[in-house]
Write a protein that binds this DNA or RNA. Structure first.
Length: 270
DNA sequence: TATCAGGCCCTAG
DNA sequence: CTAGGGCCTGAT
């Protein structure tokens, strides 16, 4: 295990922010995090976090995963002092980080997320992992399931994932998995592209529209300019930004502001 | 019973 | 190009 001082980092806020679906509070008050085929537990007290993994693994993977080398205080300080709504939202969600998650896992996860609620999204993903993912054992001895590779889902029938409660999204996931294994879509290539081109490639996949593509860009490709607009964000923007959200002001990190607003709308209000 | 939840696809006009 | 119906499923 390794303990780090962490500013503007709140593991609970990250957990409920809705960008990751395989992080949860454990009985012991720590958080379990599954990313691809990796697993770690995190405990936080104030501004000190303990990661239950070796120092090498922390440096090689989890530091980047949690975006710990980035200065979110600077993002928050840049907010327009006259924009009380955004300042409040950022204050409430100041511990949020934009994680660097796996591209395939985010693609499948946000295909599932559409017209769906977070509780059920988590359930769907957990079902898929248990049915098609590799069973693994953590250092602590607890077992978990890795997220299945595209190959494992590509061979299914289009409706087979309905058994995992995906409903009509089943064919979206299966067809997209097939596009990837067939080489029709190349995730390594997409990863190498700048934001607009990467988004355009993602939009070619069956079941991926504007909102889902932006979520994938933000949470997997770490394109901080991606600004996913869902029903909640859309309503918040109408209420607080009649003349449109000042995207220009936050050029380069608009997606961070989107997350503060999203978190505030869903979890921040009394 | 109807509506909605972190949309997208497809078809008409 | 824009509007609108249909789609799985569970919660309210």
């Amino acid at each position: 295990m390794i303990t780090k001082r962490t500013d503007n980092f709140d593991i609970d806020q990250i957990c409920v922010s809705g960008q990751c679906f395989r992080m949860e509070r454990t009985a012991g008050g720590t958080y379990s995090v599954i990313a691809g085929d990796r697993y770690v537990e995190v405990a936080q007290e104030e501004d000190r976090c303990t990661f239950y993994c070796g120092a090498e693994e922390f440096e090689a993977f989890w530091r980047d995963y949690f975006d710990l080398s980035n200065d979110y205080g600077a993002y928050i300080e840049s907010i327009d002092t006259k924009d009380e709504y955004l300042r409040k939202a950022a204050e409430v969600g100041s511990g949020i980080r934009i994680l660097r998650q796996d591209l395939w896992e985010m693609t499948a996860s946000f295909l599932i997320s559409q017209q769906n609620n977070i509780t059920r999204i988590r359930k769907c993903i957990s079902n898929i992992c248990e049915k098609y993912g590799e069973k693994k054992e953590a250092l602590s001895g607890s077992t978990y399931y890795a997220f299945p590779r595209p190959e494992a889902l590509a061979e299914l029938g289009e409706d087979d994932l309905k058994e995992c409660n995906l409903g009509y999204r089943s064919k979206y996931v299966v067809r997209t998995a097939r596009s990837i294994t067939s080489g029709e879509a190349d995730l390594d290539y997409i990863r190498s592209l700048p934001y607009p081109e990467a988004k355009a490639e993602l939009l070619k996949l069956y079941g991926i529209g504007e909102k889902v593509a932006d979520c994938i860009c933000l949470f997997a490709l770490h394109e901080l300019d991606a600004f996913p607009v869902d029903t909640h964000i859309s309503q918040a923007l109408k209420r607080h930004y009649r003349r449109g959200f000042p995207k220009r002001r936050y050029n380069g990190y608009r997606g961070v502001m989107q997350q503060y607003i999203f978190y505030y709308e869903l979890n921040g209000k009394p």
